[in-house]
């Protein structure tokens, strides 16, 4: 049993976003895509809960129409 957190949960969101963009600095698009894939896998492993992961997968794929 688990619910995907959709309320703000990152203590310093600007620091995170900055680090995320900095992670990609100097990478080719292919390298960036691979880094992103690794990042997803790392975070997914951290989450662990398939129920939560499934909700995240659905939310990410949702068409932009909110």
């Amino acid at each position: 049993m688990g619910a995907l957190k959709l309320e703000p949960n990152i203590v310093r969101p600007d620091d995170f976003y900055d680090a995320l963009i900095a992670l990609h600095r100097g990478l080719t698009p292919e390298q960036s895509a691979k880094v992103n894939a690794k990042l997803v896998l790392l975070l997914a492993n951290h989450v662990g809960n398939m129920e939560v992961l499934k909700q995240a997968l659905d939310a990410a794929r949702e068409p932009d129409q909110g």
Binding site: K5, L6, P13, D14, F16, A59, G66
Partner: peptide, 14 residues
């Protein structure tokens, strides 16, 4: 796109 629906993403919009 996420910010349209999810509050967490609104914190990232700058």
């Amino acid at each position: 796109e996420l910010a349209a629906q999810y509050p967490f993403a609104r914190k990232l919009v700058n």
